[in-house]
Amino acid sequence: MPELPTNLKGFAHVYDRAHINTDEIIPARYLNVHEEAELAKYAMEDIDVDFVKRVKPGDFVIAGENFGCGSSREHAIWALRGAGIKVVIAANYSRIFFRNAINNGFLAIECPEALGIVKSGDQLELDLLAGKLRNLSNGQEATFVPISDFARELIEDGGLLPHIQKKAAKAA
């Protein structure tokens, strides 16, 4: 499995709001499918109809508190990832969204300061090991608590299921 990349670069899509919920990230009317490419077409549709058109592979979503609250639908992660989003940086997360992110090997970074230094369109660089977010467009920086060892292990294994398989193989 791939090592966790230490440095990531991408452009920011900022949603300066708390409680962005999974109904907004992927509305229930699209839950009759679960293919990432299909879900990706509707990502964030109820907040921002042009989101999908603007996102480029590797981009970041920046948001406020309690990101991903509400429904447990993992489709929210798949829709964002399918649309090209590499990392979400929020002030903090709802429990199920955060868990789903780790389980999918998807990066959900908790950084309350990010909103203060980033605007949409800025180019960002994320140093996962150092816990540093750099805004390459304005030179400002923010720090965050590097992800926990447990989360890192899951993400490095490629998510929960490969992690379990690896453990089972070791035990055998």
Binding site: S72, I77, R99, N100, N103, L160, L161, I164
Partner: peptide
Amino acid sequence: SGVGSTDLAAALATGELW
């Protein structure tokens, strides 16, 4: 407690969850 589909898959396969 509620979980996503990956957790659900892990639970169905192993009968346990973190």
